[in-house]
């Protein structure tokens, strides 16, 4: 049993959401540390010191050669052993936005029971051809094994990406993913009832901001410990960050609905690690 789980928040090479990602884990009751990727690559630090790993958003290596690809390669080739051990130890990993792209390109997502570091899906340029920052609505698969999203039905938070369109080589791959409840969260029409928004029909722009197949916003690995998503729940950590906060009553409570994802992982680590 861990009282205060330790979170490694990667930074360096153009990762840029490291500070807020570290902050929200602290607000969720963990102790977080921003650790430069090279500290792990050079074996000056070891992932085993930590209970949770976060790969934050940003523009690692400028997203040249495809988002997340070059950082993904560093992790695939230079952190493979540490990552395998971390996963084998049953410790949670989250990748947000660029971090999601990194986890997909390392092959950790959608992944297999045991990581093989082979890429099997991709995140590519939005159909609009544009990077955009806008708030979207997400519904969650209630039957997913994902430990990060337990008890969450719907949240609103921003997307901020130009390459968020999830693709897989074939429809059967997607069917398998769906059947395994690995499609954790999807973009939904905000006018639907919470929990009733999920559909395989292509939702129009900007409800589905990037043209993602089956409106996929985030997926997990078969164990439910590794979770990646394009939207930024950490940017919805506070109620006053919601674009409509001036349309609502002023709230004493600061923490917003984006916090639940981080609290879930911290609670998981507390009871399971």
């Amino acid at each position: 049993m861990v009282n205060i789980p330790k979170v490694a928040v990667l930074f360096g090479f153009g990762i840029n959401c490291d500070r807020e990602t570290a902050a929200v884990f602290e607000l969720a009751g963990a102790q977080s540390e921003r650790v430069h990727v090279n500290n792990f690559v050079n074996n000056e630090r070891d992932l085993s010191e930590f209970h949770i790993l976060a790969v934050p958003g940003g523009f690692s290596f400028g997203d040249h050669l495809g988002s997340g690809r070059l950082l993904g390669n560093r992790m695939r080739f230079a952190m493979r052993k540490q990552l395998s051990e971390f996963v084998a130890a049953g410790k949670p990993i989250i990748g947000i936005c660029n971090g999601f792209q990194v986890l997909v390109k390392t092959g950790l997502l959608p992944g297999r029971e045991k990581p093989d570091f082979e890429q099997s899906a991709s995140l590519t340029l939005n159909n609009s051809g544009r990077y955009e920052d806008r708030w979207i609505t997400l519904d969650f698969d209630p039957n997913s094994k994902c430990i990060w999203t337990k008890g969450i039905t719907r949240i609103e938070c921003p997307v901020r990406h130009g390459e968020g369109r999830f693709v897989m080589p074939s429809i059967t791959d997607l069917d398998t993913l769906e059947k395994n409840h690995q499609i954790v969260t999807r973009y939904v029409d905000p006018s639907t009832e919470p929990g009733k928004g999920i559909t395989n029909e292509d939702l129009p722009f900007p409800i589905c901001p990037n043209g993602s197949i089956r409106n996929i916003a985030g997926i997990c690995d078969p164990t439910g410990l590794i979770f990646g998503l394009m939207p930024h729940p950490e940017a919805a950590y506070a109620n006053f960050l919601h674009p409509h906060h001036t349309r609502k009553e002023i709230q004493e409570e600061i923490l917003g609905e984006g916090m639940k994802i981080f609290q879930n992982a911290v609670n998981y680590a507390k009871s399971n690690l």
Partner: peptide, 22 residues
Amino acid sequence: VRQYDHEVIAQTAVKPFVGIEN
């Protein structure tokens, strides 16, 4: 303006676009 990231650092309480449809 939407093509600029106006929310990284998770601190922007009043954004460049506001209102019911943002």
